[in-house]
């Protein structure tokens, strides 16, 4: 496979930083009491959404999870509308009715973050069925966690996708824990990708903290899907730096484990690759980081200055 060109590389670098900065802002404003409800941050996992969505077209679709900010940003979600939604404001993507766990923009193929673990699989199968039905070459990516991989819905979706050769790429983000439960206690296998063999589809273990490895593996799976050759299951091994949700005391995992994974931070790792291979200069990277920082600040300002929904909106949009 030919490696991505400079434009794609820099775009991925920007997306990873965008997610990092966005999530850091969410962490900060949640702690300050400005974000209601629950937030599940994507910090540490940026390479997965970034590498995966960089292979997609605007017309391709994704289903996301409760830890969905990264997926939505990487698929082209607007920071301002996302942040306003997370703040519960009328100007948000969902007019403040969905919040962090339900950000969606169907017009750019984001079929929704999802509050239900394993909720996205069957929906992704349906979206992929749409592509097949219309003889379109669009592809759907289903992001799901290690916890969701045990859900019956996920297995049903894997089976349907393989039986019907749907243009669907299952991307498992294995961050090692289903809330507090480590993978070793929730399944007997080490590699979730092994489950692919049960559905006669390619199953690949990917370093989820290496954006280029993710890009490469997903490109192959997406091309395969686009050519009508059916689904794949990629397992991206990664780690969440924060708890399951903000406020989770994370008593279930050792501090040393977190340190070990933070040392594998996907962002400096990618930056080093870009610089070492002379595909980017420090000045170029700095400019991207600065631009992203500004974008996030503007998104926060937009969210904070936006009004809450009007109470009269309560009963709007229950039905079409």
């Amino acid at each position: 496979m030919k490696s991505p060109d400079k434009k794609v590389l820099l775009s991925m670098f920007g997306t990873m930083h965008k997610i990092r900065a966005f999530e850091t802002a969410c962490q900060e404003f949640f702690a300050a009491g400005k974000i209601p409800g629950f937030v599940h941050l994507y910090l540490g996992e940026e390479a997965v959404a970034t590498g995966a969505c960089a292979t997609l077209r605007k017309t391709d679709m994704i289903t996301s999870t409760h830890r969905g900010h990264g997926h939505c940003l990487a698929k082209g979600g607007d920071l301002k509308f996302m942040m306003a939604e997370i703040f519960g404001r009328k100007t948000g993507y969902c007019k403040g009715k969905g919040g962090s766990m339900h950000i969606a923009d169907v017009h750019i193929g984001i079929l929704g973050a999802n509050g239900i673990v394993g909720g996205g699989g069957p929906l992704a199968a349906g979206a992929a069925l749409s592509s097949k039905y219309r003889k379109s070459d669009t592809v759907t990516v289903c992001f799901f966690g290690d916890g969701a991989s045990n859900q019956g819905t996920t297995q049903e979706a894997l089976n349907l996708a393989s039986a019907w050769k749907l243009p669907l790429v299952f991307i498992n983000e294995n961050n090692g824990y289903g809330i507090s439960c480590p993978q070793s206690k929730s399944m007997a296998i080490t590699d979730i990708a092994d489950r692919a063999s049960a559905y006669d589809m390619p199953g690949v273990v990917v370093d989820g903290n290496d954006v280029l490895a993710v890009y490469e593996a997903v490109s192959e799976a997406v091309n395969r899907a686009r050519q009508g050759k059916g689904p794949s299951l990629l397992e991206c091994k990664t780690y969440r730096w924060r708890g399951h949700f903000e406020g989770d005391p994370t008593v279930y995992r050792p501090e040393s484990e977190l340190k070990e994974w933070m040392a594998k931070d996907p962002i400096p790792r990618f930056a080093k690759k870009l610089l070492d291979s002379k595909q980017a200069t420090q000045a170029e990277l700095d400019a991207i980081v600065g631009g992203v920082k500004k974008e996030v600040e503007e998104a926060v300002a937009f969210a904070e200055s936006s009004p809450y929904p009007e109470l009269a909106d309560l009963l709007e949009d229950v039905y079409a």
């Binding site: 169907v106 079929l111 069957p122 749409s130």
Partner: peptide, 17 residues
């Protein structure tokens, strides 16, 4: 697989069918 049937209906409907 009823979840897959209903989910495929929802997913295909939200994507235009």
């Amino acid at each position: 697989t009823e979840s897959a049937i209903v989910g495929a209906a929802v997913g295909s409907a939200v994507s235009g069918l």
